[in-house]
Nucleic acid binder design. Structure first.
Length: 400
DNA sequence: TAAATTATCTTACCCCTGCC
DNA sequence: GGCAGGGGTAAGATAATTTA
């Protein structure tokens, strides 16, 4: 195992066009760093440029199969292999690396995406506001290379196998989500048509609590000059970002015990519906059970319903349908700062099937969730395994 | 008139775009 | 090839308006 610079492993290291493209509905595929996020090229969400622009870029090097595309900004340092025999163009946010014969392209891809290389990239990020990687720095990145192609191929096989298991698990988890969606349609029909003739009423009708952080005494706490944020960790202040990441451990904020005890309505116990009131206004979340004191954050609404009429898990699944997302979005106001008001939320019409049927659906969701939990745990283990394999591989402990 | 509620403003950050 | 600027968004703070 020796360390070789990317510049010596690749015959070409360049980047895409610097010209800002004009997009069209069809024409030639145009990839930017957005299309290379998880170590794979996302061919499903590509943009196109018109033929004239493609012609203009004719002198630029076109990616070919087994080239590596590396994100220079955006998700800096993430690479993907070109796996399609197709003519397309790339933007300046992507670097193009063409491996020489001494290196097996799939091996190089794994090595570039490894945490060890990632650390090297991070050290070399340039720019104060916008972080990016320069080609010069990319060329100097050192890659651990086993002496024979044969051992490179062996490493790739091991890592690919482990990667496949991860992909498979992810696919299974995705299918469970789809299963819940189809069960919903099966029991309740298409909410846009309401062909089963369920009761339709505004969200407000069966609401027991609709509150936000401002309406319950936090003003007094602020006036008393008690710092709300970053105080001794007592109650988690659950913000949109935490809900979005579904991560309530890292990079979170807290309010102190005094402030928490003085909350009347904004204590969060789990199972509630939380809706953003500003920013991505109208976005709906189902609060998980965290087994610790939790407070609502600003800029959110918390909703609790009469459980004899509306089940929160049912409602969350209903509001997450694209039809309901559109209905909620119609209520969002503001061109610059988008907001939704409490009244607007109360007015959103929902179907209210009999509670027994809602509960039947919820039982199903809970069964699926149990399975999903197991699968996610297994996914975590597979990913840990993959990482440790990777470490061993690039330290030369797998094969030499 | 003060509390409750809603709307707006400021700041920081991320990523993309456009210019030198 | 590289950097600066700008748009969009979340978070936090505060102003403005409504309500009891």
């Amino acid at each position: 195992m020796e360390f070789i610079k990317l510049d010596d492993l690749c015959s070409i290291i360049t980047d895409g066009t610097h010209q800002t493209p004009t997009y069209s509905n069809d024409g030639y595929i145009f990839l930017s760093s957005k299309n290379v996020t998880s170590g794979k090229i996302d061919w499903n969400n590509v943009k196109y440029i018109p033929e004239q622009l493609h012609e203009k870029l004719s002198k630029r090097l076109k990616p070919q199969i087994n080239d590596i595309l590396l994100a220079k900004n955006g998700t800096t340092g993430v690479a993907a292999l070109v796996d399609r025999d197709e003519i397309f163009d790339i933007y300046v946010s992507l670097a193009l690396l063409r491996p020489k014969g001494i290196i097996y392209p799939q091996y190089l891809l794994h090595a570039i995406n490894s945490p060890m290389t990632k650390r090297q990239f991070n050290k070399n990020l340039k720019g104060i506001g916008v972080q990016n990687l320069h080609l010069k720095e990319i060329r100097n990145i050192e890659i651990p290379v086993p002496t024979t192609i044969d051992s490179q191929i062996k490493i790739v096989k091991v890592l690919d196998k482990a990667g496949e298991l991860i992909d498979k698990r992810k696919e299974q988890i995705k299918r469970l989500d789809e299963l819940v969606k189809s069960r919903f349609i099966e029991l309740f029909g298409d909410p846009s048509k309401n062909e089963k003739g369920w009761e339709v009423s505004g969200i407000g009708k069966y609401l027991k609590v609709l509150t936000d952080y401002h309406s319950n005494g936090s003003y007094e706490t602020l006036r008393d000059n008690v710092t709300l944020l970053d105080t001794p960790s007592y109650a988690l202040m659950v913000r949109t970002t935490d809900l979005e990441k579904n991560n309530f451990e890292d990079d979170v904020k807290y309010i102190d015990e005094h402030a928490y005890n003085h909350l009347e309505k904004s204590k969060v116990f789990g199972g509630e519906i939380i809706i953003n009131k500003i920013g991505s206004a109208g976005k709906v979340y189902l609060m998980p059970f965290l087994n610790r004191p939790v407070s609502l954050a600003m800029n959110q609404f918390l909703l609790r319903f009469d459980e004899n009429k509306v089940n929160h898990i049912f409602l969350y699944n209903l509001l997450s349908t694209s039809y309901m997302e559109i209905r909620i979005n119609e209520k969002v106001r503001g061109a610059v700062t988008k907001t939704i008001t409490k009244d607007a939320i109360r007015e959103v019409n929902i179907i209210v099937p009999p509670i027994e049927l809602q509960n039947k659906f919820v039982d199903f969701v809970k069964q699926v969730d149990k399975l999903k939990f197991k699968m996610e745990k297994s996914l975590q283990e597979l990913e840990n395994n993959f990482n440790s394999l990777m470490q061993k591989a690039f330290k030369g402990e797998l094969f030499n």
